[in-house]
């Protein structure tokens, strides 16, 4: 028998997921205020529309809402200013087809000699990973974070993203290898 989420259970769930949700939004929109707004909107939507759902359904519902809220943010941004859209289409991070880490990799290749992993502080590695995640194509980042950070299985990730399981596997594989390559180019061995 499935149990409906009580106030305390919903509170615990939101407290457990809010930081990762903020980071996910931050990777996507690259602005702390906008990321906080996205997390707040997602929390409100979850509580208002699905506050009476069983607890076990909340993680998937919340992720779906979060991803949709991020997508809605992109849409609003496009409507607000056309030039931003044109700029973002040319800049890395929003481009679906090309992998910006490939260009990043070649640019950073010269730095590998004087950037050994053992001299980097832990926070620097984290900073690097954050930066590279921001630069990943949106769908790759989304699939990677849902699959490996939020620990959804392939089918659940596909349901949240609204794509096939095959696409999720492809996105995850590309994202993981692109991140590993980019870090390696900086002298960071995972």
């Amino acid at each position: 028998m499935s149990l409906l989420a009580s106030r305390n259970e919903l509170s615990e769930f939101l407290a457990g997921v809010e930081r990762r949700a903020y980071k996910q939004a931050m990777f996507a929109v690259r602005n702390a205020e906008n990321a906080l707004d996205i997390v707040q909107d997602s929390m409100l939507k979850l509580a208002e529309k699905y506050g009476a759902k069983p607890i076990v359904e909340l993680p998937m519902l919340f992720q779906r809402i979060l991803q949709n809220t991020i997508r809605d943010f992109y849409r609003r941004q496009k409507v607000r200013s056309l030039w931003v859209t044109l700029f973002s289409a040319l800049s890395p991070g929003r481009e679906e087809e090309s992998d910006p880490l490939e260009t990043l990799e070649s640019a950073d290749a010269s730095n590998t000699k004087d950037g050994p992993a053992d001299r980097l502080e832990q926070y620097q590695v984290i900073e690097l990973i954050d930066q590279y995640l921001e630069r990943l194509p949106q769908r790759q980042r989304q699939a990677f974070l849902l699959r490996y950070w939020e620990e959804f299985d392939v089918a659940e990730t596909a349901a949240i993203m609204g794509c096939s399981a095959g696409s999720v596997k492809t996105h995850c594989s590309r994202a993981a290898h692109a991140l590993a390559e980019a870090l390696r180019a900086k002298g960071v061995e995972l």
Binding site: R7, L10, S11, L14, A15, E18, L36, V39, Q40, M43, L44, L46, A47, E48, K49, Y50, G51, A52
Partner: peptide, 10 residues
């Protein structure tokens, strides 16, 4: 944000 959401829990 969390507290606001909880206040509106359905």
């Amino acid at each position: 944000a969390r507290e606001q959401a909880l206040a509106r829990q359905r």
